[in-house]
Amino acid sequence: MQIKVGTFNLNNLFSRFNFAGAIDRPPSVSDGGITLTFDENSVQVRTFMGRLVKEKDPEDTVTIARRIVEALDVDVLGVQEVEHREILRQFNRDYLGGAYDEIALIEGNDPRLIDVGLLSRLPVGAITSYQTATHPAEPGKRVFGRDLVRIEILGPDHEPLLAVYNTHMKSHYVPFHMDPVAGAAEANERRRRQAEAIGAIIAATEGPDSRFVLLGDMNDPPASPFLAPMLAFAGGTLVNGLTEAQETRPAKPETPGQGPGPASVNWTHRFNPPGPEFPQYEQYDQIWLSPALAPHLAGAFIDRRTRHGGDGSDHDPAWVVLDL
């Protein structure tokens, strides 16, 4: 059988519900509708770094949904930056037309409540969260700022097909109050420790014949030395599934005077730094295949944005086609 497995950072898929309330019993409905009134003590406004946390723009939500349905059309989709399971369920129901039968999401560690999750047309088996994993350098602190999850994907007859590891690693963001050089070094070190933790987990869980995928928003290019520790285990070295990826459309040309644009098709994230520097193109969104799964790779794709800022997300989704 042929299956398609993808990854997409949905860029702050938050719900529109931003309050807390409680009722003692179900209200009586006689006129077809109800009105719930909350006093000021029952309203909870959520902020992050001084800004109100609001729902994702509806137009952007429609756009990412259209990309998933029309461009990707994958069987298994690992997603990042999703607030909770219910908003992912609603997104699948209201925007994807219920395209996916299985929805998996476990609340992680992020203070902004952005989690990693999965949508699947195929049956799902065991789901394991490694959010409590630590690193030897700081054994009292969780190493993953979000999570690493392992999800078993089953065939139509519920036989094991492969496992999907999904993660969202430390970003390059440095708070304004920190020294930029020291802050960047700290972020890189955190990412390296996360990669070492991922490598250790894979080594302890998977064997030479294991068929699995490691995907997600790695926040570093594939050749980064900070990611290297997660790529080798006792069963061999993971294979970059997107090396020969094809674009669904060419990249939008850069504005004159803003540089030559991407050097290759192998990018999913564009960052336009302030000042005279040219925009930077990197393949942050990655799909790594285990040595036992790599020979089954039949194709790889990246859905290219039509706007420099991104179409509904600042990341472009990617996917691979596997013949199993």
Rank of each mutant, 00 (worst) to 15 (best):
R193V: 08
D110N: 03
Y100F: 14
D94H: 08
D94W: 00
G207M: 13
R142D: 11
D209W: 09
A195W: 06
A203G: 14
N92D: 04
I114V: 12
L118R: 05
P208E: 14
E138H: 15
F144L: 05
F212P: 05
H158F: 12
P175T: 07
P222G: 00
R191W: 06
T134L: 07
E206N: 13
D179T: 07
F144M: 06
A99R: 07
R150I: 00
G207P: 06
A195F: 06
A104P: 05
L215Y: 01
D94Q: 11
H158C: 00
F212A: 06
E102A: 11
Y95L: 01
I153S: 04
G199Y: 07
H168P: 13
L148T: 09
N109V: 03
F176H: 11
A163C: 10
G117C: 09
V181P: 09
A195P: 04
S224M: 03
P221I: 11
A203R: 13
E159S: 02
A204S: 15
P221N: 03
I201D: 10
A197F: 07
A163W: 10
A182S: 13
L214A: 07
A195H: 07
E152C: 06
T132E: 15
D147V: 01
I151R: 02
I114Y: 00
H158T: 01
P111N: 02
G207W: 10
Y100R: 04
I153L: 10
I103M: 07
P175M: 06
D157R: 00
P136W: 14
G108K: 02
P225L: 05
P136A: 12
A203V: 10
G125E: 05
G125V: 03
R93Y: 08
I153Y: 02
L161A: 08
V181D: 15
A187I: 00
A187S: 13
R142M: 15
N92T: 04
P180R: 15
N188E: 14
R190H: 04
L154A: 02
Y100L: 10
I202G: 03
P175E: 03
P208F: 09
Y165R: 10
I153P: 03
G145I: 05
P208R: 08
I153A: 05
N219Q: 11
V213G: 01
S171A: 07
L105R: 01
V116C: 14
V164G: 09
L161T: 05
R191M: 03
D101E: 14
Y130T: 08
A163G: 10
R146H: 06
V124A: 04
E138Y: 15
K170M: 11
D101R: 12
M178F: 14
G183E: 02
D220K: 00
E138S: 13
I202Y: 04
P180T: 11
H177Q: 13
R121Y: 15
P175S: 08
G199M: 05
M169Q: 07
R191G: 02
R211K: 15
I198E: 05
D209Q: 11
R190M: 12
V213H: 04
P222H: 02
E107T: 13
E189D: 12
L118C: 08
E189N: 09
